[in-house]
Design a protein around this nucleic acid. Sequence first.
DNA 1: TCATTAAATTGTT
DNA 2: AACAATTTAATGA
Length: 245
Amino acid sequence: MSQAGFPSTSRARAVQPSRSRAAQPEDLAHIPWLPALGADERQRVLADLRVVQVEAGELVCRVGRPVTYWFGLVDGLLKMSNDSAMGIPITFTGLSPGGWFGEGTVLKNEVYRYNIQALRKSVVAGIPAETFHWLLGRSIGFNRFVMNQLNERLGQFIAAREIDRLNHPDARVARSLAALFHPVLYPGVGEVLRITQQELGYLVGLSRQRVNEALAALQADAVIRIEYGGVRVLDLERLRSYRRS
DNA sequence: TCATTAAATTGTT
DNA sequence: AACAATTTAATGA
């Protein structure tokens, strides 16, 4: 199964530079650790905070770049992957609004080991590594958030192992889709998850053909609807608990 | 705005 | 893996 490098995932076309804008009040409302800070701490954060609009397909941070920011997703959907140049081991994780990432690498002051790519048009915020460290040594509430974040990540990791153990391909595709949806806390069904079958194949570790087949089965069960460049979730509950029919 | 062309994605074998 | 069919995005009149 030669994976012939990593197929430039979805539409990684060169997009014009992201529009950086000042942080809006509604952005701040989506930063979960902000309320945990004291007034003076918050003041510094607001001064250092940067907010960026990224288009679908844009890379937020690239493997190997030195760490400068601790990032958080304000709105949209991001995909985290470790497709290096060799690109055999591939792990994917969906990132939800309110989720912050990169603390591991920021803590150790290493280079990024992951690519973060926007699956949809998204709003990403970030604070400089120095500010991150400053908060870490100062605010208990902030530490609590980071700890919670790490714990959550561990939970996702374990869930991923569990999905790995599922032998039925259809079920694996279904559960992985549900896992991508979960963090997003969708208000209702009928949402389109913009991800290609090729990407899904890498996500679950199956061939594109098999994914296509699995999706067809899921569609036949009226759990999802296949659309060009994505799938529409019709029944999230059944998707979560899908097993072979 | 519409038609044409290129590229991306899907459906099948 | 290869191929055809379909959909979308880009381009220029």
